[in-house]
């Protein structure tokens, strides 16, 4: 680990000032990803600004929306009664990730900004465009079982590993940001960039811009929602494919509304806009779900070791939505 200074901020303004004072400052949440990356010297901040003192409040509002402080711990969010009742997919997504210990440490803001688990990103002996822009990508012809089938580029196929973000994407969460130039709000699905030819630039955050809160707009039908995660062991493993979904079926069996996002398949939490659009107004049948899944995955590209994810993703989408529709896949 490279030496760094440490300071603790109790509010966003202080945090931004502290971060602005050092050329390569990073915000420190639970540290579950950043500390590991610093040990690997993939992250070499000269200053850490501890933001775990920022808001840890979860505010469930009367209008059905929820405001979540960025320093809220993953466990607290998953266990919150309003989240469990109104947004079960979010609870389930968080609980499907990592371990009890890590969920107790990890913050909401940190979870959103965690970095990829691509094997070649983690190994400084390998070529990686994300770590060293222009170096090349050893994952493309290497072990890419965990890598992306959607939204990847020739330069990078690394996936975003968060489970929580998949649910946030499905829920159309808004991020509250604060920076030197003031505050702004963006959709979570707009935060992460696709790699194109600049995989080192992962988000649209400005320098030292800080996530201060996550807002979940009301979505009454999300009470009927779930998260399904497929992985290589029964627990404590990153997703090969995951799906967060909420479904609103009218009495006549047509789909009034649907939310669907995928994890493990793309460089960002992948909102399945295409499938959603096809499904609104369609019958809530396994056949319709499969057709929508086919459409969502139409542009998927498999690499040497991850082509299976294309069919797997289709199946997971179909089975998850079918289950929510009350049927059996």
């Amino acid at each position: 680990m490279t030496p760094f200074t440490y300071a603790r901020a109790q509010d966003a303004q202080t945090a931004i000032q502290l971060a602005g004072a050092a050329p390569a400052a990073r915000y420190l949440g639970g540290g579950t990803n950043l500390v590991d990356l610093m040990r690997e010297t993939i992250e070499t901040p000269d200053a850490l600004v501890d933001v775990t003192g920022l808001s840890q409040a979860i505010e469930a509002r009367d209008d059905g929306s929820i405001l979540i402080g960025a320093a809220v711990k993953n466990t607290a969010l998953a266990a919150h009664r309003a989240v469990r009742q109104h947004f079960p997919l979010l609870s389930r997504a968080i609980l499907a990730g990592a371990s009890g210990q890590i969920r107790n440490m990890a913050t909401v803001g940190g979870n959103i900004l965690q970095r990829t688990r691509c094997l070649y990103f983690y190994d400084d002996a390998a070529r990686c465009n994300k770590r060293s822009p222009g170096a090349g990508c050893d994952a493309r012809e290497g072990f890419n079982r965990m890598n992306a089938i959607l939204g990847a580029s020739d330069a990078c196929s690394a996936t975003h590993p968060s489970d929580m973000c998949v649910a946030l994407a499905a829920l159309d969460a808004t991020l509250h940001l604060a920076g030197a130039e003031g505050t702004r709000r963006i959709k979570l699905v707009e935060l992460h960039r696709l790699p194109d030819d600049q995989p080192d630039i992962e988000t649209i955050l400005r320098p030292h811009e800080l996530i201060t809160a996550v807002e979940l707009p009301a979505l009454p039908f999300a009470a009927r929602s779930t998260y399904r995660k497929v992985r290589d062991r029964a627990s404590y493993a990153f997703a090969l494919v995951s799906a967060a979904a909420a479904l609103d079926v009218a009495a006549d069996g047509t789909i009034r509304d649907v939310r669907l996002a995928l994890g493990g398949v793309a460089p960002k939490p992948w909102r399945a806009f295409k499938a959603e659009a096809m499904l609104r107004g369609a019958p809530a049948t396994a056949a319709a779900f499969r057709t929508a899944a086919e459409a969502e995955l139409a542009e998927a590209v498999g690499l040497s070791g991850n082509s299976f994810k294309i069919e797997l993703a289709k199946r997971v989408i179909t089975a998850t939505l079918t289950e929510l529709a009350g049927g059996v896949a």
Binding site: L119, Y120, D123, A125, A126, D138, E141, G142, F143
Partner: peptide, 8 residues
Amino acid sequence: DERSGRIM
């Protein structure tokens, strides 16, 4: 990795 001989 049979290109580098490295465990990944």
